[in-house]
């Protein structure tokens, strides 16, 4: 019993919370506070932080260059999420319906790529997409013009890389929500005159919405903050907001601006998530 007669938690219960609480305070609350403070400070002439309060770091976001990078990042993250949803839903549906003996093997196959470092997998994609890479050679062999995706269409390449990288994050929650659906519900829909398509639209899809939401959030947030994929594919010349932030803390030595960017990104993600929950009309995940 962790609650007493009046519904209050016991003292022992709070004692058990202390380690977690300490962790969160030391490694989340304090750093976040420091970063928030930094975002209102100024950059020193040779880097470093000068504690003169200013809103200038946030105002700088109004510059067309930075605004464009931010909007572009949002666009790519949204495209990645939609693509993962379109590709991942049929896969998750199949996994949820396949005979149980094969299901675990297939789920394992879905996760196996994660045993390889993300950096290595991204490099592998670079070898596929680059000039005279695997993709170009396949096209040439088929007597088609080589697409040279990595250099001619770096944004599309980044999008491909992100979809590849985060597809499993979409599939797993979708699978979880589809797998627990009672197959009798689908039979009931058929029985009541719903065609397979109508059954999907009126029964399967609405019941899988929690999975859709969870999957979308799990894909959208890391896509928006993507760093490795645009960095490797763009050779440092293609910037998503994650790279911009990385630059501020690295080469540009502008920690205050980097902090401000991070906070804007966090706020956007938070607002986006809340809006998405509202739109889907689901509180429970």
């Amino acid at each position: 019993m962790t609650r007493d007669a009046r519904g209050r938690f016991s003292r022992d219960f709070y004692i058990l919370l202390i380690p977690t609480l300490m962790w969160v305070i030391c490694f989340f609350v304090v750093p976040s506070g420091l970063m928030l403070a930094t975002s209102f400070a100024q950059r020193g002439t040779h880097g470093g932080i000068v504690w003169h309060w200013t809103l200038g770091n946030y105002a700088a976001l109004g510059q067309p260059l930075y605004g464009k990078i931010l909007l572009n990042s949002l666009f790519i993250a949204a495209c990645t999420t939609v693509a993962c949803l379109i590709l991942g839903y049929p896969l998750a549906y199949y996994l949820a319906r396949v005979r149980s003996r094969w299901r675990n093997v297939l789920l394992l196959l879905l996760v196996v790529p994660f045993w390889t470092n993300f950096l290595v997998r991204t490099y592998a994609w670079k070898f596929i997409l680059r000039t005279d890479g695997l993709l170009d050679r396949v096209f040439t062999a088929l007597h088609l013009p080589a697409p040279d995706l990595l250099y001619q269409h770096v944004q599309f390449s980044v999008f491909l890389g992100l979809v590849y990288g985060y597809l499993a994050f979409m599939v797993l929650p979708l699978y979880a929500s589809l797998e627990k659906q009672d197959p009798a519900l689908l039979e009931a829909a058929h029985d009541l005159g719903a065609s397979p398509l109508a059954s999907f639209r009126h029964v399967t899809l609405p019941l899988s919405l929690p999975g859709v939401i969870a999957g979308s959030i799990l894909v959208f947030i890391p896509s928006l903050g993507a760093y490795i994929t645009p960095d490797l594919f763009g050779g440092g010349k293609y910037l998503m907001v994650g790279n911009l932030i990385g630059q501020q803390f690295g080469a540009s030595l502008n920690w205050p601006f980097g902090s401000a960017l991070s906070y804007v990104l966090m706020t956007l993600v938070l607002l986006g998530a809340v809006g998405y929950f509202r739109m889907m009309g689901t509180e429970e995940i």
Partner: peptide
């Protein structure tokens, strides 16, 4: 869905 037959399921299968 094209049969003039309806079923009451053991689990009820209510949506």
């Amino acid at each position: 869905h094209r049969r003039n037959v309806n079923t009451v399921f053991q689990s009820y299968a209510l949506f």
